[in-house]
Design a protein around this nucleic acid. Structure first.
Length: 540
DNA sequence: TCTAGCACCTG
DNA sequence: ACAGGTGCTAG
């Protein structure tokens, strides 16, 4: 059923992902077209094989700088952009084929972190995953020629800690580690949701992993943000003193803020502590897993550690994980059409069966129903989320108008369970309802266990299969308050009931799957970069 | 920990 | 000139 090829390429300077298998989804009928025919891999270049698509992370050097220091992303109630922003260069697409590009941000592990002694440490178990939301690139669907023409930017994507966010921003929990992922879904006309051959692939760049915070913890990160983000230019003071602060305080002379002092102290002191603490890595095993085997023992040190212990462990080379699946048959299809909403009715029931994933992996993306806007009107970003029953999702799914764009959502992921753990029972992750039968998507897992010397079995290793679930419209209605003015753009995207908040995105709920993990279907993971040992996060 | 309001800056 | 993206700070 699945075919996969994997080719991972590690490029030196860039992280390129190539594809591996892709699942095809089978579908019935759908509005959207997914490819209907089962696709057999074709090798022509012109082909539509998703596996030939390569994705390079833009500004990788900058991402690496942050990664080495332990990237932090601010999350606020109103939504905050990521910096560095997620931009990619895509090649290898069929110029005429239409694709939907979307992003989701999944838990990198199941820990909660705290920043102590200038380094990140595990501080307990992660909170249940939030409803996963997808951010569909505003240009979606568009032809391969369009996507390849220039950089594909997800800079408008916003992160929030407001679980009831009405704007469609991606909801995250503070002090948790996350991994952004890029999904490329073929949206040909031929494909209908339900059609059997929908193919998609997922790319993961390790260097984009980050810890969400409500205020920066590591001064080094603050400085990198100020130095590189144009919007923070106002904080670039002279080295000596922060003139801006002085001005704010009405002084003529430079004043160093308490925070600055605090951070500087910490940071200087941190180097020391960091080294001490650097041994364990907790997360991101995935990246490392293939290349580095750490048995859980503190890594031998890598220079990268220098980076202070706070950095994420990672691969220093490229760290891109890529997987593609084609899925066919049973399952649900993605809705790609993007033009029609579809209702999803299925609920969750199905999902678990098909869906399996290796324990330590991310959940695969799911597709969910789309709500989407037509065209997303403004072409601003769209976020989709699926929520399953919880709170937000109250709106009846059935009736909800479906967004015109359908994109399936990928379910959010759940944290990786470590081996052996079955973690998520409590929170079932149901990414997608059953629309898709089974999809396999794989995601790298990060579990620490992966790092061990021996490569894990394929399935365990990285990919998990995912299945697509039917879209769940419900989430759309959940938001309590009306959209803010700034979000007006989004509103056009979704249909919503009067009074309901506007949302541009949907929620997916991603519940962590329970992790059965097995692999039934092949899941594969591809990585391109190699790893390196990077800074590690320490487990406490 | 988190939030709101701020001054400063980019588009 | 306006809208909106920044980190900072007090609370």
């Amino acid at each position: 059923m699945l075919q996969e090829k994997a080719s991972a390429v590690a490029d030196e300077g860039m992280t390129v992902a190539q594809l591996g298998g892709h699942p095809e989804l089978a579908s019935d009928s759908s509005h959207l077209g997914l490819p209907t025919t089962p696709s057999i891999p074709q090798n022509n270049e012109s082909d539509q094989n998703i596996e030939n698509i390569k994705v390079v992370l833009h500004d990788r050097e900058l991402w690496k700088k942050f990664h080495e220091a332990g990237t932090e992303m601010i999350i606020t109630k109103a939504g905050r952009r990521m910096f560095p922003s997620y931009k990619v260069k895509v090649t290898g697409m069929n110029p005429k084929t239409k694709y939907i590009l979307l992003t989701d941000i999944v838990p990198a592990d199941d820990h909660r972190y705290k920043f102590c002694d200038n380094k990140w440490m595990v501080a307990g178990k992660a909170e249940p995953a939030m409803p996963g939301r997808l951010y569909v690139h505003p240009d979606s669907p568009a032809t391969g020629a369009h996507w390849m023409r220039q950089l594909v930017s997800f800079q408008k994507l916003k992160l929030t800690n407001n679980h009831l966010d009405p704007f469609g921003h991606i909801i995250l929990n503070s002090m948790h580690k996350y991994q952004p992922r890029l999904h490329i879904v073929k949206a040909d006309e031929n494909n209908a949701f339900g059609s059997k051959n929908t193919a998609y692939c997922t790319h993961v760049f390790h260097e984009t992993a980050f810890i969400s915070v409500t205020s920066y913890q590591n001064h080094k990160i603050t400085q990198l943000k100020i130095e590189n983000n144009p919007f923070a230019k106002g904080f670039r003071g002279s080295d000596e003193g922060d003139l801006r602060v002085s001005r704010l305080q009405g002084k003529d002379y430079p004043v160093i803020s308490k925070n600055m002092v605090r951070q500087r102290l910490i940071s200087s002191h941190g180097h020391l502590s960091g080294k001490l603490g650097a041994g364990v890595l907790s997360s991101h095993p995935q990246v490392v897993s293939h290349y580095q085997y750490d048995s859980g023992v503190p890594l031998p040190n890598s220079d990268s550690q220098e980076a202070l212990s706070n950095s994420f462990p990672s691969s220093r080379e490229s760290s891109l994980l890529y997987h593609c699946f084609k899925h066919r048959d049973n399952t649900r299809h993605l809705e790609l059409g993007c033009k029609r909403p579809y209702l999803d009715t299925t609920a969750s029931a199905v999902s678990d069966e098909h869906y399996y994933r290796s324990p330590p992996s991310y959940d695969p993306p799911l597709l969910s129903h789309p709500y989407c806007s037509d065209a997303l009107g403004s072409r601003e970003a769209c976020m989709y989320g699926g929520m399953e029953g919880e709170a937000g999702g109250t709106v009846g799914t059935d009736d909800l108008p479906v967004p015109s764009l359908n994109c399936n959502m990928w379910a959010s992921v759940q944290p990786y369970p470590r081996y052996g753990m079955q973690t998520m029972e409590a929170m079932p992750y149901q990414p997608f309802p059953a629309h898709f039968n089974s999809t396999a998507s794989a995601v790298p897992h990060h579990s620490p266990s992966m790092q061990r010397p021996h490569p894990a079995p394929p399935d365990l290793v990285t990919f998990t299969t995912q299945r697509v679930l039917p879209p769940t419209p419900s989430s759309a209605s959940s938001s309590p308050s009306g959209p803010a003015p700034r979000d007006r753009a989004h509103s056009s995207l979704f249909h919503r009931k009067p009074g309901s908040p506007v949302r541009s995105q949907r929620d997916f709920t991603g519940y962590p799957t329970h992790s059965p993990t097995s692999t039934r279907e092949p899941a594969y993971q591809y990585q391109t970069g190699l790893s390196s040992v990077g800074p590690h996060w320490t487990d406490s």
